[in-house]
Design a protein around this nucleic acid. Structure first.
Lengths: 222, 222
DNA sequence: CCGCCCATCTGAACATGTTCAAAAACGCCC
DNA sequence: GGGCGTTTTTGAACATGTTCAGATGGGCGG
């Protein structure tokens, strides 16, 4: 996350300059091959300045992620509003993230290395990223609510979080998908999304009650 | 992996001394809080010596993993031989790994950070770890072969690798499972293992042929 | 025993993320 | 405008993973 510095216009401008320099270099050479000295130099500040605005090199990646979240906040509700079909809505939410991340795969690989450890300060599963995670999950709740597919009450509470985890898994696969244009991810998304929507539909059939309860119980326990 | 140094007894002894020192310190303080200088000092060598035997700090973790694999090679076939029941066999293979790793959770977290990136030299999914991965997968093939549960021919080829991935997922969950004594992992293992065996049994029913083929095709494609 | 080669080992040097004390710039009150 | 407290910026210093040119020493042919 970002330190709450940079309230004055000038400071804010410096912060942006550093972040822009960092992201440009990350994209160009990758995370590991970009040094903090490079970033500072490109932003025309001393090495230490970056640490005045960002707690660590990794926080710069997080700041990128926060920017993406800002953008999503403006766009996603409108995307969801375009259809009431659950599958289309989910597709829209997921595709939006893929588009945002398209040009930053190298960068996000660094983020994954951090994120896999839930104890790390910046893990998407950790405490500090709660607001951003919550917002992402909220998008899925929006997509479910008042969609044309009926979702059982007892699923409503946890389904958004499950869908978020599903999205995370897709993104993870996508990051390391070396097939041309990440074709395999497209395949995987198409196949599994269909499956997911089917499962949700099935789960509301009357006979499914007990099974659904067992699944919900397991999910809660874990 | 390990550099092919240490052919003379004396060198071999030095190598072991460094590895022992490293593992002791990793376990004591964790990976990040152990410096190469600490390790060298504890092993009574100069800092550079460690790099004569190990290409990097991370390679020391890998050497631990290799040791564990050595041990498994001696033990696992016997464990599998104790029963023909598929579930029991799988349990045995999986539990053996858990027991081995019990006291080294902190260490393995470092390994995961590396391993999540398939492009990293030491990723369990990468080229360089192929032999060790192959051996682990082979254990699952052993467990399937001549077990009391019939496994369809077209599954035999890929099932061991799938089971290995399943094991990896369990280990990942276990690593970050903070419930007392990793009780949740026990729950998860029990629940999913039952499920897995059921699925395998189901898959050999006559009607399942087409569905099975679709799943196999998807797995192959991905 | 000598001299040579090569595996082994040393420790200083290097690169880079990070910290920190001090300097500079800024805003504000008088 | 001058003084003063705060914010911003600087650049040297530090910690640590890693590299490398050279020292060490042990074995072997002569």
């Amino acid at each position: 996350m970002v330190i709450a510095r940079g309230t004055t216009p000038k400071a804010e401008e410096t912060r942006e300059r550093i972040l822009d320099a960092a992201l440009a270099l990350f994209q160009e050479r990758g995370f590991d091959d970009t040094t903090m000295r490079d970033i500072a130099e490109k932003a025309d500040v001393a090495t230490g300045a970056a640490y005045y605005y960002f707690r660590s090199k990794e926080d710069l990646v997080m700041a990128f992620y926060a920017r993406a979240a800002d953008e999503a906040r403006d766009v996603v509700p409108e995307l969801i509003g375009r259809s009431r079909d659950l599958k289309k809505r989910l597709r829209a939410v997921i595709d939006q993230k893929f588009e945002q991340f398209e040009e930053h795969r190298k960068l996000l690989i660094a983020l994954v290395r951090i994120g896999i450890d839930p104890k790390h300060r910046l893990s998407p599963f950790g405490k500090e990223t709660e607001p951003m995670r919550g917002e992402s999950i909220e998008f899925f709740r929006l997509a479910i609510d008042e969609s044309s597919t009926n979702v059982p009450k007892d699923l409503r509470a946890d389904l958004p979080a499950l869908l978020w985890m599903y999205q995370m898994a897709l993104i993870l696969y996508w990051l390391f998908d070396d097939s041309p244009n990440q074709k395999k991810t497209k395949l995987l998304t198409d196949g599994t999304l269909e499956l997911v929507v089917r499962l949700i539909q099935l789960s509301s059939l009357p006979l499914m009650g007990p099974l659904r309860k067992r699944v919900v119980a397991l999910v809660r326990a874990i």
